[in-house]
Design a protein around this nucleic acid. Structure first.
Lengths: 364, 364
DNA sequence: CTGAAAGCGCTTACAG
DNA sequence: CTGAAAGCGCTTACAG
């Protein structure tokens, strides 16, 4: 079985005499080498690469053995060109905290390891009118295999619509279902916030403050609403003036606490909808000479590294971000998102309350 | 100028009759469409794409105009296949803090924006014996255009050697030159730490503690050494038992401060070689009822968001990480790293002391 | 279960 | 300054 055109250019590894040394090639072998050395057509090698069932087991074994021996892996660019899509997963996000982004990346990479796929990061500025165009160009230019959307861009219906139009796979990570199950990964923030409310109430607190995120964020509705709902179910109605709309930033946490701690009666506990704002509460409390948790109990949300590093360590809600990233990537790598999966309920993860040292029974 | 083989399969946009509607195609045009519609060969279009000077200005204009009109951008996979390399930049790192990683990513992406290149992240575990193989596979498989190495993997000579062997471009970000100038981006940590020493001495502190990173890190030598050198130049010799080897973690900062604050005489100032450890110093000081900066001045390194969020806000050294990321990516995108650049001194950035509220003159 | 031909969208020699 | 041919390393129809 000689090659058809000896006069054509050939890769270095495809010399006419396959010397034993050829075996030592590092990552340079091509599908042609595998086909020639193993005596089958490249189409059959291609079938092996793509796990087609239409290959005789013996043939498959022979091919796999040589691929392993030569350390052959198919060229993603060539495959991509022929497939008309790449082996890249895009991670698109607006402006979450660094730890959240990094955890999500680690999780996604956990799932991608040894899969032949790689992770391409794409932060963007959703406050710009044309940011969706930027994402679209990114997705189309790179012919991404799939896209992971994390809050807050995951909440943008126009972005999702644009991705649907392109026809790319995508997964939205959000605190509430807002798309077909195949496209959703839900973090049950509401439920966890209710748990925080139950805990604070059970400690005996009755005068309570709440610092939320911006009203336009879905997570604000879930986290803040879950907390209020939890208190309500236990007979505590939070007056509107004990609710402060923050911006998920440290400074807004300071401002919120300054506001709440000036009220009379002064709250004995504050729930901040993320840890950064909770850290701001610490600062405001210290400035006023209030001790935590002696004079004020504080609960956050996220369980960022910051939470354990504050003094006293912050009681907060742990969100399994890395797991979420892993699951999202897995959803993208899975089989066609049609069939059964489509009908099923969206996947969900449950953040959990982590009790540390910033909470106790109120004095007196 | 009709196409040679009307019987061959053609892309949808290449219908025989270029209707006006064809103009509205979104990102589907190919080099063939540009060539046909503009009446030149695809090779000439290719020359325009690659900025070859060997194109008549008028021809170039005509081609560029149509490309713009059709929203054409060359397919990176096809280019990559022909070029035998991709348009991807790899970011390789071990285990820095989240904020550092994210800032570096933002910086690199700043430089890559609209360049046609994308950023692929590759965290790894340098404590594993075979992590270099993992990086090598990553680089070769994706045929990366270049790699950015950030501390601590940037300090690994074996990794650098492996990359040289592969023949891929790379930039090492480190606190001291350790490779050819074309491959180095130096953050002058030593100089900045000396500045911190000068500042602390100038406040009047004479009993001073130092918490370093692990001895095997190059940054430890630079940061710790720069600090000691600065004190020494001003006539202060730090006794060895006022130096604690930490691990760049919050907990090791706590441990270091517990150790130092138990000494007699007790230090009136502590320099921690990163902010996380400085945060640990805060915790230990508070536990002992020591006020910052009244009883103890604290200086950190990094200027992470944490620094501004501590109370009192931490005096620290600001490292322009995002700029560093941007410069590193630019070095990778630049012209061939031969010629002049090679002879020049390595690029360097200078971290700066940021004085906040955690430092003052010692009491008494 | 297997293969020969044509193609994915570009670039590299090579020739003018 | 320009172009026709061959190729990069794979896959898709199509045929057996």
């Amino acid at each position: 079985m000689t090659e058809s055109a000896p006069r054509t250019r050939r890769s270095r590894t495809a010399s006419l005499l396959p010397a034993p040394e050829d075996t030592g090639l590092t990552g340079k072998a091509t599908i042609n080498d595998i086909a020639r050395l193993t005596g089958v057509s490249k189409k059959t090698v291609s079938r092996v690469i793509n796990n087609s069932p239409l290959v005789h087991p013996e043939t498959r074994e022979k091919v796999l053995a040589l691929m392993k021996q030569l350390g052959y892996t198919p060229d993603p660019q060539a495959r991509g060109l022929a497939f008309r899509r790449s082996f890249l997963i895009g991670l698109v996000y607006d402006n979450p905290t660094a730890q959240y982004i990094v955890n999500m990346q680690y999780g996604a990479l956990d799932a991608l390891r040894d899969s032949g796929y790689e992770l391409v990061v794409h932060p963007c500025d959703s406050s710009k009118e044309d940011y969706i165009d930027g994402v679209r160009r990114f997705v189309q230019q790179q012919k991404l295999h799939g896209v992971i959307l994390i809050p807050r861009v995951s909440e943008d219906e126009q972005l999702a619509a644009a991705l649907r139009e392109i026809g790319v796979r995508y997964v939205r990570i959000a605190s509430v279902p807002m798309d077909a199950a195949a496209h959703m990964l839900v973090t049950q923030d509401r439920q966890a916030s209710t748990e925080a409310a139950n805990y604070i109430e059970s400690l005996g607190h009755r005068t309570i403050g709440l610092i939320t995120g911006p009203r336009r964020y879905r997570s604000t509705i879930e986290r803040g609403g879950g907390f209020l709902g939890g208190l309500d179910a236990r007979g505590i109605k939070l007056p509107p003036d004990y609710i402060f709309e923050g911006g998920y930033t440290f400074d807004s946490g300071v401002a919120g606490a300054e506001y709440l701690l000036a009220k009379s009666p002064r709250p004995t506990a504050i729930f901040a909808c993320n840890d950064e704002m909770a850290a701001g509460v610490y600062k405001a409390a210290m400035r006023r000479g209030l001790s935590i948790p002696g004079d004020l109990s504080v609960v956050g949300f996220d369980d960022s590294p910051l939470a354990a590093q504050l003094w006293p360590a912050l009681t907060t809600i742990h969100s399994p971000t890395r797991d979420v990233g892993r699951q999202a990537a897995q959803m993208l790598l899975g089989e066609e998102p049609s069939s059964e999966a489509a009908a099923v309920a969206p996947r969900a993860v449950n953040p959990q309350l982590v009790v540390r040292d910033s909470t106790q029974r109120p004095k007196g």
